[in-house]
């Protein structure tokens, strides 16, 4: 079976104010459809950087990145935008909802992005289905400032799911939530893998990580299976 995503020896160097730093120095990763992967790592180890390469926010400096059979290591921005729209869904630590739009409009944002066009009725149906999936269809007309953190994050997940992506990328989605709400959100993400979606979850929380199919650790710019959980 062809893997959904395959990274071979991916490297990335970031140049800040100081000298260039090798953040990723040869990352190998294979994710199949329906599989869920957790990535752990110290703060500053490069987890977000890795996710931004997988999500085509940025391109690797070296190595190879395959999406299905397609080599997308050096993809021009215009095609990358189209792939972000069609293949990837993102969830961030901060929910990044637009305050002036309702929950439904925030979800529809992923459909109104200049990549293809759905008439209003179809758009609405998809938005409601996505909100239904994360259990907050009743909040469709609510604006983010009047929602709880967990509700907001579930709106963000609905936004990530509304185009039925093949890969779901979540960067510390529970970082701003209490434990109970965090579990709810991880549950909503995990449910997506049951429909064949690949999930890559970056988290600091070992408990959430252990709900994934595989747990990896990013250390010194390389990805390796996580050591057995310690303590607790």
């Amino acid at each position: 079976m062809t893997p959904l995503i395959q990274l071979n020896g991916v490297t990335k160097t970031l140049k800040g104010q100081g000298a260039p730093r090798d953040i990723l120095s040869g990352v190998d990763l294979t994710v199949h459809g329906g599989e869920s992967v957790a990535i752990l790592g110290r703060s500053g180890s490069g987890k977000s950087t890795l996710l931004s390469l997988i999500g085509l926010f940025d391109r690797p400096d070296g190595g190879q990145y395959l999406l299905g059979h397609r080599d997308i290591t050096r993809l021009p921005e215009r095609k990358a935008a189209a792939l972000r729209s069609a293949e990837f869904g993102f969830v961030f630590q901060r929910f990044f909802l637009l305050k002036h739009l309702t929950a439904a409009q925030n979800v529809a944002m992923a459909l109104v992005n200049g990549q293809g066009w759905l008439p209003r009725r179809k758009r609405r149906a998809k938005v409601m289905a996505a909100l239904e999936q994360v259990g907050i269809a009743h909040l469709a007309k609510q604006r983010p400032p009047r929602m709880s953190g967990g509700e907001q994050q579930r709106v963000a997940i609905a936004r990530a799911l509304v185009r039925e992506p093949r890969v779901l990328l979540a960067d510390e989605p529970t970082g701003a939530l209490d434990t109970e709400t965090g579990r709810l959100v991880i549950g909503a993400l995990h449910a997506a893998t049951e429909r064949g979606c690949g999930l890559i979850l970056v988290t600091h929380d070992r408990e959430h990580a252990d709900r994934m199919g595989r747990v990896l650790q990013l250390d010194n710019g390389v990805l390796a299976p996580a050591t057995e959980r310690v303590g607790v």
Partner: peptide
């Protein structure tokens, strides 16, 4: 800034 970054993240082309 955040809105535009977010819109790009969900696939909106920069020209748009």
């Amino acid at each position: 800034i955040e809105e535009f970054a977010l819109r790009r993240a969900v696939g909106t082309p920069r020209s748009l």
